[in-house]
Simulated assay, not measured.
Amino acid sequence: MSPKEKLVEPKGEVLPSPQKILDMVFGFTPTVALATAVRLDVFTVLSQGVSTVPELSKATGAGLRGLVMLLDFLVSLGLVEKQSGRYSVTPESESYLVRGKDTYVGGFLDLAPGMMQDWLRLGDTLKTGEPVRRVETQDASEEFFPPLIRALYVANMGAARNLARKLGIGTRWRGLRILDVAAGSGVFGIGALLEDPSSTVTALDYPRILNVTREFAAKAGVEDRLSYLEGSLREVPLEDNTFDLALLGNICHSEGEDASREFFRKLQPAMRAGGKVAVIDMVPNEERTGPPFPLLFALNMLLHTRQGGTFTQGEYTRWLQEAGFKKVEAVDIRSHSPAIVASK
């Protein structure tokens, strides 16, 4: 039955098709299949030219019957190609799912089983209000985020470079002192440095996470233009009149409203006249009816933080203006959400 077909009850009442709901019942299956393929190194083996089912079975340890089913499903998802009974990687899977490549994002899939277990407890969290697993404390962050941010570096570099270009970094805006707040992999600060060789970045984050920042800075060849502030954004002091640009990449959603508003107030004196703050996060529309990803991520924050959530452009605008920032605008960075940029 196609999604457009209707069901007709005996009384003659026309009902919409339940297909959308039925599709959601099996919505978890692509994630599980993809995570399994990554765990078995299917894409890595395919990239090495192994193409027949018997050869792939030997290389991955998977049985013939199940492996064919898995490969065919991956073909239907557009992640594997099939021709005359032989399989190969697609440009997308070769770029991002081959272990050992700098662009590998399989770290996301390694976290999938634990995330799915957390989501299965959503009902408990809705009743108690308590997260099933907190990730915003220092100990939890330093354990949870290092493998995740390695994949996020690849996923976010395009948005980081787009933001830098939209702000004119390296063209009409040069020689900046940039604060990368909760830097993680450092992708947003590094993206700016790649656009302008005369700018510098101060990366603020917990010590074990900054070890990953240093690693990516070295790989990008910008390690000599980064300095580091170790600690919590809530506690580390910031000198007045110091920074031209502050980058808040995917941190407000875990901090929550109160802590984000407090940090904006703390940040404002540290910005130079004409300086800018860029908030990069999951931003739903004002009515909170979409897009789906920011709303999905709000539930993810319910599961994993005490105060986290996702916030609209209107909310960020009010919070930044009450902290003393002036013009606030949305900047398209060709990502799931625009960046929210405010000026001092």
Rank of each mutant, 00 (worst) to 15 (best):
G184Q: 06
H253I: 13
G231Y: 04
P91D: 09
G114D: 10
H304C: 01
P113A: 07
T31A: 04
G61Q: 04
L109F: 03
E255C: 04
N211C: 08
E262A: 10
T103L: 10
G106S: 08
P269S: 01
L111A: 12
Y153D: 03
A59H: 08
T36H: 00
R318Y: 03
E235C: 05
P197A: 14
M69R: 02
I190H: 10
D196A: 06
K20P: 07
S337V: 15
E315W: 07
G114P: 13
P10Y: 06
G170I: 09
P16L: 04
E195Y: 10
A203M: 13
V32C: 02
G221T: 12
V8D: 08
N300R: 14
A62Y: 08
E13N: 13
Y153V: 07
G78F: 11
E287C: 10
L245T: 11
G274K: 10
Q19E: 15
A218Q: 07
C252T: 12
M69F: 11
L74A: 02
G85S: 05
D196E: 07
E230D: 07
T52A: 12
R306E: 10
L70K: 07
A203Q: 07
A259V: 12
G275H: 00
E287M: 03
S335Y: 11
F297Y: 14
R174V: 05
K344Q: 06
T128K: 04
A203R: 05
K327R: 12
D102P: 06
I169K: 05
V14P: 04
S51P: 04
G129Q: 09
Q117D: 05
A164C: 08
A298Q: 05
E230N: 05
Y206K: 14
T200W: 12
K219A: 07
L302P: 14
L79I: 00
L67G: 11
I340H: 09
H253T: 14
R272F: 04
R133V: 02
V38G: 05
K327M: 13
G85R: 02
L176F: 08
L77Y: 12
G123R: 12
T289R: 13
K266R: 11
E255N: 10
T310A: 03
L179M: 12
E5A: 13
Q83H: 11
